[in-house]
Design a protein around this nucleic acid. Structure first.
Lengths: 224, 224
DNA sequence: CTACTGTAGATTGGATCCAGTTGGCCTGTC
DNA sequence: GACAGGCCAACTGGATCCAATCTACAGTAG
């Protein structure tokens, strides 16, 4: 029911993200990479100097990361990277299973050929990233692939919540990627999952649940 | 090991919240109240002047509210209050049902007398707020009560997600409070729910689901 | 030797200042 | 009279400056 919204998304909105957004992306990447670990403090001035900006955009970036649960801000004490204990990881994967199964069940009846094509596209890129051992790219694409399966459900709020959860989970997944050989299995599962979705087979939901919960229990914890 | 550390955790850490936090709380309240409605712009300078502070803490407060999904920030265009369409409300209540039922099921086996007492306390306050027609307080206490039922599950991440959802839903609930007489029913349901939890009756979960989904479908939308 | 205290350096919090963008209004021209 | 283009006010984005707070260390008293 699109009504020709103005939406100047013609070609490229020139990608004009503000400095705080850009810095937030940068810092998030470094946290997900593991460059900043558990209790590490993130000093405003150090970051500001590093990117040759003032401390202000850094402060706003940290606020954003706080909202995403990646850092904790204490007044007059600065930002420290939040912990990633195994109970937390376990709970986050449980949440993923609960929410992603629910939304997939809602998406299945509306899953069409164009959706399948989009998902397949991500799947191909995913394989490429795996072969290049590009963990950062793999993590992003993994979520993009999953997301593409859920898009037909037309549930923006659920997707938004899931996006937040996946950002956190990514810190864990990246470690998995280098630690285990389970990724090949994941790729196969992804293909199977897409097949089931394409034929709108309701067992896709159960398959997805298993896929998510299996991924949760490989290593014991991201950090000692 | 230091034993004689100051240990200022005695009773009250003086609750020192920073200016951005305080302003965020204030603005959130005004958005939930409906003082700022759907597409309303929130001008940094106006807010800053109003609270007699500079624009900077306001900017950080707006970042926080953005993270909670209450406002949308566009570069060089400022902040506008996010919309609250009925599909969104409906989806948020579905999410509540899904997540709160799951967490309640996990909490029930650990639900003890002290938990019941805490919940009962919130219930009493809730009734008082209702009689005073204090919608702001009622909304907060409603969540506090629900939360107290879920605490024994020991699932901080799920609670965190639910907290975010409930903040958004509160905008809707407050309108309900003045528009419908369904609150008395909600109070009765709360008492029944607490009884079921106290005796660890598994049907509490189904009762909760009905309680949440019923609340969702009273008015059609918060704003035209 | 231990425990408290005061001071200095580092770091964050907040205010003020300047630059860049947006959007509306106004004028000039066809 | 209508439309294009430029100008101006309002607002946001970012930088710099000052104040408040925390931490660590050293000095001193018991």
């Amino acid at each position: 029911m699109k009504v020709t919204t103005r939406e100047a998304r013609s070609v490229n909105p020139i990608a004009r993200q503000s400095l705080p957004d850009a810095i937030a992306v940068e810092l998030r990447e470094r946290i997900l990479n593991g460059e900043f670990k558990d209790g590490d403090p993130i000093v405003q001035e150090a970051i500001a100097e590093e990117y040759e900006v003032s401390r202000m955009p850094v402060r706003e970036a940290l606020r954003q990361l706080e909202g995403q649960g990646l850092v904790a801000l204490k007044t007059h004490k600065g930002a420290i990277v939040t912990s990633m204990k195994k109970e937390k990881v376990s709970e986050l994967f449980d949440l993923r299973a609960l929410l992603e199964c629910d939304i997939l069940a809602r998406a299945l009846p509306h899953f069409g050929p164009s959706d399948a094509a989009a998902a397949q596209d991500f799947l191909n890129q995913l394989e490429g990233a795996y072969q290049r051992r590009d963990t950062a790219e793999w993590g992003k694409l993994n979520w993009q692939f999953h997301r593409s399966l859920y898009l037909p459900a037309n549930r923006p709020e659920t997707l938004s919540v899931l996006e937040g959860i996946n950002i956190q989970v990514e810190r864990f997944i990246r470690v998995q990627l280098v630690m285990t050989g389970a990724v090949a299995a994941a790729e196969r599962e992804h293909r199977d999952l897409l097949s089931l979705c394409t034929e709108r087979n309701p067992t896709a939901v159960d398959y997805l649940r298993k896929h998510i919960l299996d991924a949760a229990k490989l290593p014991s914890s991201i950090s000692a």
